[in-house]
């Protein structure tokens, strides 16, 4: 084990996979010489050279399309989009091409590629740079959607995504880059895709969360323990496919669920998870499933009102108190 940041864990995963497999290439805006706008690709150009670490024009749709073609041609590209917001420029290649090619060509083509994208809000970057678009990707079949909360998960999940023969979206939370944790140094350390993790066992309420929301949920659970409320925190890690088994087993045990999502509430992943819980656990639910969501607004700049738009420890605590006190 070594203590390192979320950023360095992702960087290590990239380096290990590039050492492991010469068909892995990294491409994106400012990933090579500038070493990434969030410095996630630091040291890649000097170790692997300009054949494998490629700066690209600011052409997001074509960045993804080039990765699709390169993957069809036998490479294992890892494309970085500078932030998830810019993925909207690339939705044609992501949705109409990347996720369809295996299916519409009758299984004859594979597209083993990964798209890395920083995302999330909370840094006063305004409406166009603060979005949480994870649900957009989850809605479309044909790709993995991964969003880790810890450095160890980030390393293990990214390595699994790169080795997987399906296209994967790998989201990185901008406010987690400097968070620290123990990371296994084993270059074969892999986190299985599609497996959630119980990050804190508990008895009375299941809190389902992901990425930075998991960090907040764990803080909330700690504080609630002081009030005598025992929370189980399920960290999704994989948003697609969702690990129904882990989510539903936890709710069957606790009989209550709070789902925390950073994305917009309407048609958000919280609605999907709540629906799955209602469909499968109605008989054991003691209260309705509660959602704690990002507000349905474009993100404002001013930090005083921006913080109202993103779930906080306090809003999670309040939701848990509501479902355990009958105050729902």
């Amino acid at each position: 084990m070594a203590e390192m940041t979320y950023r360095d864990a992702i960087n290590l995963a990239l380096k290990e996979e590039m050492r492991h497999d010469p068909s892995v290439v990294v491409l994106g805006e400012d990933v090579a010489l500038y070493e990434g706008s969030f410095k996630v690709t630091r040291g890649l150009l000097s170790e692997f050279g300009e054949e494998r670490v490629k700066d690209t024009p600011i052409s997001e749709n074509t960045i993804i399309g080039v990765a699709v073609g390169a993957a069809m041609g036998g490479l294992r590209p890892v494309a970085e989009l500078m932030t998830v917001n810019f993925a909207l420029l690339a939705m044609d290649q992501i949705v109409n091409h990347m996720t369809k090619i295996h299916y519409m060509f009758g299984g004859q083509a594979v597209v083993p590629m990964t798209i890395r994208m920083p995302g999330g809000g909370g840094s006063q970057l305004g409406a166009q740079h603060s979005q949480s678009l994870e649900t957009f990707f989850m809605h479309c079949p044909g790709m993995r959607v991964l969003y880790p909360s810890t450095p160890a998960d980030a390393k293990g999940l990214l390595k699994s995504a790169i080795r997987d023969n399906n296209p994967a979206i790998f989201l990185e939370h901008e406010l987690l880059y400097n968070s620290k944790g123990d990371v296994p140094e084993d270059p074969e350390y892999l986190i299985p895709i599609g497996k959630a993790a119980v990050k804190r066992p508990g008895e009375q309420v299941t809190i389902v969360a992901y990425a930075r929301m998991t960090v907040l949920a764990l803080q909330a659970a700690e504080e609630l323990a002081g009030e005598g409320i025992s929370c189980e925190v399920v960290d999704l890690r994989s948003l697609a496919p969702l690990d129904d088994d882990t989510i539903l087993a936890s709710v069957r045990k606790t009989g209550r669920a709070v789902v925390v999502e950073e994305c917009w509430r309407t048609c958000g992943l919280g609605a999907e998870i709540a629906s799955r819980i209602f469909e499968n656990c109605f008989d054991v639910l003691q209260t309705p499933v509660r959602r704690v969501s990002g507000l349905d607004v474009p993100m404002p700049y001013s930090r005083k009102i921006e913080k109202l738009c993103i779930p906080r420890k306090e809003t999670i605590i309040q939701a848990v108190r509501d479902v355990t006190s009958g105050g729902y």
Partner: peptide, 25 residues
């Protein structure tokens, strides 16, 4: 024969990516 694509212009970047894979390999 690497495909017929039905979004107008969708095949451009994929062609460039395939050419990149050929050059790389």
């Amino acid at each position: 024969f690497m495909g017929g694509y039905a979004i107008v212009g969708g095949q451009f970047p994929i062609s460039v990516g395939l050419a990149f894979s050929s050059k790389y390999r």
